[in-house]
Amino acid sequence: MRAMVIDDSRAMRMILKRIVTKLNFDAVEAGDGQEALDLLADMPEVPELALIDWNMPNMNGLEFVTNVRADPRLREMTLVMVTTESEQSQIVRALAAGAHEYVIKPFTEGAMIEKLALLGLVPTGANS
């Protein structure tokens, strides 16, 4: 399986990449929503999962989610917001725009894996 990690912080991308790699995903990185869309346009196979920061330059995570939801080719992608935005209204907005799950920073590795398990994206037994 493939996962796209979209965050303008390289440090955060490394953390997320480490976690999804442990779960046997091949990870692709993007530094903002636009870069992610550009990468997706060139990918023959759509990744199963995207982990998406909210506040990023060029195109933020919410706009990215909206764009993905509007594109039938990307319909199968599971979208998880991973952000410090933690107002209730923001979570509601992201879910309404089409995000499937929402992880608030800071998160522990265990919490991230549990969220992915909720979405059926963790093969049983991979839960280390």
Binding site: S9, R10, A11, M12, T83, T84, S86, E87, P106
Partner: peptide, 25 residues
């Protein structure tokens, strides 16, 4: 040096984001 800067920035960002959530909309 780059790792150090990235992580310092992200630490401020995470605390700042959580503080923001407690402020008026």
């Amino acid at each position: 040096q780059e790792d150090l800067s990235d992580v310092l920035g992200e630490l401020a960002n995470i605390v700042g984001g959580n503080v923001k959530a407690m402020l008026p909309p």
